[in-house]
Computed example of a mutant assay.
Amino acid sequence: MRQVLRQHPALRDDIGDLTTRRPLPSRDLPQLDPFLFLNHHGPQVYAPGNHGLPFGPHPHRGFETVSFILKGEMAHLDSGGHESVIGEGGIQWMTAGSGLVHAEISPESFKQSGGPLEILQLWVNLPARLKMTQPSYTGLQRADIPAIAVPGGTANLISGDFEGQKGPYASLTGVAMMTVELEPGASLTLPAPSARTVFLYVVAGEPVVGGTACREAHLIELDQDGDAVEVSTHGPVTLLYGHADPIGEPVVAHGPFVMNTREEIHAAIQDYQAGKFGAIAG
């Protein structure tokens, strides 16, 4: 069984009126290869007549973004012509690849009526061979995601294999990802294939992981010894859990671009400024 090495707190870094905490990257953990970045927005309640999410049109190249809508809803538009509104329990998985412009905003109905909002936004790196792949987007509603019963709770399987089932999203790099909702007194074992990087973020509650008491809103860094993770609970717990093969390549990041070299970053900026990423219609 894998053991806890360190716990990394999600530090407060609000974006306008959007409550935001970030455990990755941090001073002690610049990346968790291939996982690059996690923002935890909310939980909070928006009043009626709000301005909604602040993520207007912006570019990306060289990696993937995964948004988990835990509460509320979020609209997606991009320069590839993809458009959707994903509700509570759904996810948005976008492969930026060679480059596109996207916006993650609140639909008009949410801005008018307000309500609760909680969203996780994860960046997953792509290897050099896939950084210039064709951009793509998949939006999954809660009903599209298998809810698998586990001892004392539910695992919502987004990608990869678990308990004989396959997640609805086929990751380009074999990333396995799920959210796990546990009741008090739960005890379960999650797969952590050897040589893979495990991503475990405590969204809510205080689980015991590998015998170590873990804190809410902390990214749990695990060792490499073992092929499974034991989790137990005293109170209710929500986890973001996944695993992936490390890429092991240089990472050069500049704002919304993640490449392998400075030259590739300069090329991304030039291509974006030249309009090669396209634009959002309307």
Rank of each mutant, 00 (worst) to 15 (best):
E108G: 11
F63V: 02
K276G: 01
A217M: 14
S98Y: 10
Q224E: 15
L188R: 09
S79F: 07
G16W: 12
E88I: 07
E183M: 10
A176V: 07
H218W: 12
Q3S: 15
H234F: 05
E163P: 00
F68P: 03
L77D: 13
H51M: 11
Q270F: 00
S98V: 13
L239K: 08
M132G: 03
G210I: 06
E183A: 13
A279F: 09
P256E: 05
P116I: 08
D245E: 09
A75P: 00
V198I: 09
Q270N: 00
G275C: 04
S171V: 02
P57K: 01
N260P: 01
S98L: 13
H82E: 03
G114F: 02
L188F: 14
G62W: 06
L157C: 09
L172Q: 14
G56A: 07
T133K: 10
V150D: 13
G235D: 12
G56S: 10
E181Y: 01
W123G: 05
Q121G: 07
I265Y: 00
Q31W: 15
I145N: 04
R129H: 09
T189Y: 09
A244Y: 07
I15V: 14
L200F: 08
L38W: 14
E163L: 05
F277D: 04
P9W: 00
I158V: 15
G90F: 08
L222Y: 09
M177E: 10
L24K: 06
D245R: 15
G115R: 12
Y169Q: 11
Q224Y: 08
L120R: 06
G114I: 05
D225W: 14
T154L: 09
